[in-house]
Amino acid sequence: MGHATTALPEYDWALFANPALLNNDKVGLGFYGLRNYGFAEITDMSATGSVPTGFGVAALGFHRYGDNLYNETRIRFGYKNEWQMLHFGLVASYNHISFGADYGSGGAFGLDVGIAAQLAEDLWIGARSTNINRPEYEGINEELAREIGIGFSYGLNELAVFAFDAVKDVRFPVSYRGGLEINIIEELKGRVGVTTEPLSYSLGFGYGMERWVINFAVQKHELLGFSPGVDFMLYF
């Protein structure tokens, strides 16, 4: 859906987007893999799990990008709760970067925040900010990426979901992101999306039952090519 995830309610990967929208209802466990532009050396892999409790939702996630020559690793701890119609979330993360052949490595702790609210029955608004503490990799003198995003989503009678985000990285122009999910038949859903800065297009589909769901997607970067990906979620 073009990475337009800031206001998607109960989004399975909200720990890596807007933590205020973690799933309240189920224990979830998920895995995904994404081969960026077809290169095995810059593959994304991630896992996430969330558990609703009497004090909110707790979540844990792991993400790795790259190979032995260059890689980035993140471990994320998230918490989400709500008060009346306001949902809020917080993520603390440890980020590690490593260069092969003894060129060095470094780590940094980051802090993300997110809020969301249901304005009407099927209309949501959300906002998030990443690395608000301006972390910097120790020994490398490089700051982690910082961005702020705001988004809307609207559900059309369980037949479709529209989502739109505006995201600003402090180093780059504003990125506009839009996506559409359509319920094709029963539990089969189709998705399309577009993102600017950089310009990319995406499409995919998902199928699932009460206890599991599997999703396939491919993104086309205007210059770098295709990035296929798959994820699998289990619910308990």
Rank of each mutant, 00 (worst) to 15 (best):
N18V: 06
K168E: 03
A117V: 09
Y32H: 06
G151L: 05
I140G: 12
S175V: 01
I185W: 05
T196H: 02
S153E: 05
F226K: 15
D122R: 11
N23T: 01
V230M: 11
G114P: 10
G155E: 12
G56D: 01
T196Q: 01
D44G: 01
V213E: 13
N141H: 13
Y94Q: 13
E10M: 06
N133M: 13
S153Y: 07
Y11T: 00
V218Q: 10
E136G: 12
T5N: 14
G190P: 06
I115D: 10
Y11E: 10
G107H: 04
M1H: 14
E187M: 14
Y207C: 06
G49D: 01
L144N: 07
F172A: 11
G204A: 02
A20Y: 03
M1A: 15
L180I: 08
E143G: 15
R177C: 07
D169M: 09
A20C: 03
G193C: 06
I125F: 15
L119P: 00
T196M: 00
V57T: 00
Y94C: 03
W212R: 01
A217W: 10
G110A: 06
R171D: 13
E41F: 11
S46M: 09
T43R: 02
E72S: 11
P228W: 04
R128Y: 11
N36L: 15
G28F: 04
Q118H: 10
G179I: 04
Y176P: 05
S175I: 03
N24R: 12
G104N: 12
P52G: 03
T130H: 09
Y65Q: 07
G66Y: 08
D112W: 14
Q118M: 12
A166L: 09
W212V: 04
F152C: 05
S153K: 07
A116D: 01
F39Q: 10
Y103R: 15
G225E: 00
D102K: 14
D12Y: 04
E186Y: 12
A59N: 02
P173C: 09
V174E: 03
V174P: 00
E197G: 05
L111D: 11
E138R: 13
R146W: 06
V213I: 13
D12P: 13
A47S: 07
K80I: 01
S175R: 03
V57A: 00
I150L: 05
M209W: 09
L86F: 08
E197V: 04
Y201D: 10
L69D: 15
S46N: 09
V113E: 04
Y70A: 14
N95D: 12
G66W: 10
F162V: 14
